[in-house]
């Protein structure tokens, strides 16, 4: 592991921490434009975070230490997740520590803590949110794993850096299995990040909300960390999509110049991805909570078909 590797790793984590709220701001801004609103501006998430960090944290009288520790833990999990998805370079010192399956485990760990923290106060909303979050989670997790397995079977590896290296080495084109897997990943990402067809990030209506119900009792810096972690999660999912399906331009090992070029390229991909996400959210309507299992079942089926098609048509480049 070289110094360059460490530099790339550090750059990647810092970029994720800095860019995640911007990405969220960009998606919100695009949505506003698409809905003919002016929008709060790109920097609004930063302003919100700053405001929340300055405020006192109001804790419920019943809150246990678990409730106070959870935001930091979830934030830590999401930071690590952003650190192991190769977006800028495929030479990452942290990468051997956790592969694709461990990444799914990392998301699960964060989800469990978010849900436990929501149940800690013992309000109706908290436990309802926890139940829904876990419901979405147990349906989305197998689908996500199947998407990752499809790419893992193509590259004969579950190590994310190897997957990206293999996938970026093939010629530009659309593999049928990858196309199906990409659609599945988008569906999973929408569900996992509480985006529109599954949850509405802008609502406070108890019949529909998932994410808002989970963080209802948080305030001040704890809420800021939770929201930042949610932004990081969205960012991580965007990065997984980019890394698996449009990996071209990620720097290989021993390539400092490519590393410099990778950042603007990543920004461009993220901008496009964010716009598409906003478009998708604007075009679709929020579905009833009982439709969510069907939606995620579809995602899961797509991912399984992707894997089968991959086995039938053979891995690309062979």
């Amino acid at each position: 592991m070289s110094a360059l590797g460490f530099a790339a790793q550090l750059l990647e984590i810092l970029a994720a921490l800095a860019l995640a709220p911007l990405f969220l701001g960009w998606v919100n801004q695009c949505r506003a434009w698409l809905q003919s609103r002016r929008g709060p501006g790109l920097l609004q998430p930063y302003r919100t975070l700053h405001k929340l960090f300055n405020k006192d944290s109001v804790l419920a009288e019943r809150a246990s230490p678990l409730f106070r520790a959870a935001p930091y833990l979830v934030f830590g999990c999401m930071t690590l997740a952003c650190g192991i998805v190769p977006t800028l370079s495929t030479e990452l010192p942290l990468s051997p520590a956790a592969d694709a399956i461990a990444l799914v485990g990392l998301f699960a760990l964060a989800r469990v803590f978010v849900s436990l923290a929501a149940m800690d106060i013992g309000t109706a909303f908290g436990s309802l949110g926890a139940r829904r979050e876990m419901l979405v989670g147990f349906l989305a997790e197998p689908a996500l794993l199947m998407v990752l397995f499809t790419t893992a079977l193509i590259s004969d590896s579950t190590s994310l850096t190897t997957i990206v290296r293999t996938l970026s080495a093939r010629e530009v084109g659309i593999q049928p299995s990858l196309a199906l897997a990409a659609v599945a990943l988008v569906m999973v990402a929408l569900a996992e990040n509480a985006r529109v067809p599954v949850d509405n990030p802008a609502t406070h209506l108890e019949l529909t909300m998932i994410h808002e119900a989970l963080v209802l009792e948080y305030s001040g810096r704890h809420l800021a960390l939770m929201e930042w972690a949610a932004a990081l999660k969205l960012f991580a999912y965007a990065c997984i999509g980019i890394a698996l399906f449009v990996p071209w331009g990620v720097a290989g090992a021993h390539a400092p110049l490519a590393l410099l070029a990778a950042l603007p390229l990543l920004l461009a991909k993220l901008a496009l991805g964010g716009f598409l996400l906003a478009l998708l959210e604007t075009l679709s309507a929020k579905m009833r909570i009982f439709r969510v299992p069907e939606f995620l079942g579809m995602a899961f089926m797509l991912a399984v078909i992707a894997m089968l098609v991959n086995l039938l048509l053979g891995a690309p480049g062979r």
């Binding site: 006192d56 944290s57 109001v58 804790l59 419920a60 009288e61 019943r62 149940m119 106060i121 013992g122 309000t123 109706a124 909303f125 908290g126 436990s127 309802l128 926890a130 139940r131 406070h204 108890e206 209802l216 009792e217 305030s219």
Partner: peptide, 20 residues
């Protein structure tokens, strides 16, 4: 840190039976 009663979307009274 300030301690206060639970917020619960502003519901004025809460009891244990309201939990899931």
């Amino acid at each position: 840190v300030r301690r206060a009663p639970a917020w619960d979307c502003g519901h004025p009274w809460q009891n244990a039976r309201m939990q899931d």
